[in-house]
Amino acid sequence: MSNKPLISVKDLSVHFGIRGGGFGKKPVVRAVEGVDLDIAPGSFFGLVGESGSGKTTLGRALLRAVPITRGKLTYQDEDVTYDLGTIEKQELKEYRSKAQLIFQDPYAALSPRMTVRDIIAEPLEVMGLTSSKEETDERVREIAEKCRLNLEHLRRFPHAFSGGQRQRISIARALVSKPHFVVADESVAALDVSIQADVLNLLKEIQQEMGLTFLFISHDLSVVAHVCDHVAVMYLGRLVETAPTRQLFAAPKHPYTKALLSAIPSLDPDDAGVAEKLEGEIPSPTNPPPGCKFQTRCRFAIDICRKDEPKLDHTGNEHNVACHRWEELME
């Protein structure tokens, strides 16, 4: 693998104007603010955060599915480089075949009136990637097999399938155009644990086999710990910490990451109540607090945290953290 990142993000912001607020200035939701991120080719990159942290918006920005307010976004594989900030029409269409999305809810994502074969074939037909029906069928069969769907399944409609099977159909559809980059947005959140493990293993298998790069968005840290090699933690539109997975879980540096980790209910009956509980809830992105965005819930907040917003610090070993006091807190 080359050292050049497949996806490179510099100072990315995505704002949405919303209705309401009465007179004067229109309220703006700062869903993503000043994010820097590199995703290496072939990596399984995890993005975690609570609801409202902007992780879905960031994922969609990388697919150019939402307009970008500010910043630079580059996609670069062996053949082409796209500047996703300015990309248009024909190039954007090409990019769509290289970057795909797997949705959260396998019940809502599949049209109930199309057969599984048609669902999987649709991206090929829309993007005009195949020249004949035979070729389309061939591609559909090939990917269906990889996703453990048999030929019998292809003739049926989605309602005949269970949650896990539906999610495999969604995966097949996302991968049929042979993308390089796939955003999986909470792709296992709607599944039962016994099925979840199966879908995670499948994603991992396919990723290695096809050499894909994944952005895996999830609120479930233990899932992320198992499948991802890199993790970025988001809070209120900002990245607060990024690191290789092992390192992040072994030695989290940001107080928010620590709190998130300790909030996971332990499976050990004797390990109760040691958790460092977070008070309160994530503030509204229309009206974020000044300074560090986490200061309203942070036990360690001091004056500087309430005034200045911390930048993402490089602490070595690809471990970055945005906290004024992380060094003191490590002691």
């Binding site: 269970s162 016994s194 099925i195 293993n201 997975t245 879980f249 980790l261 996971i264």
Partner: peptide, 19 residues
């Protein structure tokens, strides 16, 4: 099948098949 943070090296064991 539960991902356990203390056992990251153990692969997730799925229960085969669907309900």
């Amino acid at each position: 099948a539960l991902p356990d943070l203390d056992k990251l090296d153990v692969p997730l064991a799925a229960i085969p098949g669907d309900i």
